[in-house]
């Protein structure tokens, strides 16, 4: 009899543990997925952004452009502006360098200065060549490039943009 009683109690203890674990798992696993959900979401949207007519771009002279994209984060929409320069190297419509105007040092916007024939960053006097190479100043690497671009049939240059 006491043996039986002991077994019954052991059984109850084990069942209690299992049931408690089940409840914990049933709420815990969805909760983890709920918390980590944003990390699982496939990030960045992609799009082809028109930069301008190829005919308007003088060969050898940086053509400034800018565009705004809206990022949807949950219920909030934030628009971010991006800018850059398209530089035609030759008559060949494929021979174009497209630079991001964000300085690689601390993210200020660089401007083209005709006198200097260089991109100057107003923040720490960095200097980049027409190709985006660092000529002077603190930047750790050349200006970023929009490597993917295409020409539409109407002669409009489009760059491939991917949200980070």
């Amino acid at each position: 009899m006491p043996d039986n009683e002991l077994n019954r109690r052991d059984f109850i203890k084990v069942t209690t543990g299992i049931v408690g674990g089940l409840i914990g798992a049933a709420i815990g696993l969805p909760a983890i997925s709920y918390l980590l959900d944003p990390a699982f979401k496939s990030g960045g949207k992609e799009a082809w952004i028109p930069v301008g007519k190829i005919a308007d771009m003088e060969i050898g002279r940086p053509y400034p452009f800018s565009f705004t994209r809206v990022q949807v984060n949950g219920w909030e929409r934030t628009s971010t502006s991006h800018g850059g320069f398209a530089i035609r190297k030759s008559e060949d419509p494929k021979d174009i360098v497209i630079l991001n105007s964000r300085c690689t040092h601390l993210g200020c916007t660089v401007n083209w200065k005709d006198d200097a024939q260089a991109f100057l960053c107003p923040c720490h006097d960095a200097k980049f060549s027409e190709e985006g190479m660092v000529l002077d100043g603190p930047p750790p690497r050349p200006l970023d490039r929009y490597a993917d671009f295409r020409l539409t049939d109407d002669g409009i240059l489009e760059i491939f943009y991917k949200e980070s």
Binding site: P30, A31, S33, Y34, D37, F40, G74, W75, E76
Partner: peptide, 19 residues
């Protein structure tokens, strides 16, 4: 944002509807 954030919990987040 209260209304939109609840809507996001219900439709945008995994298992938000359950929680």
């Amino acid at each position: 944002h209260a209304y939109d954030s609840i809507n996001y919990i219900m439709n945008g987040v995994a298992f938000g509807w359950l929680i």
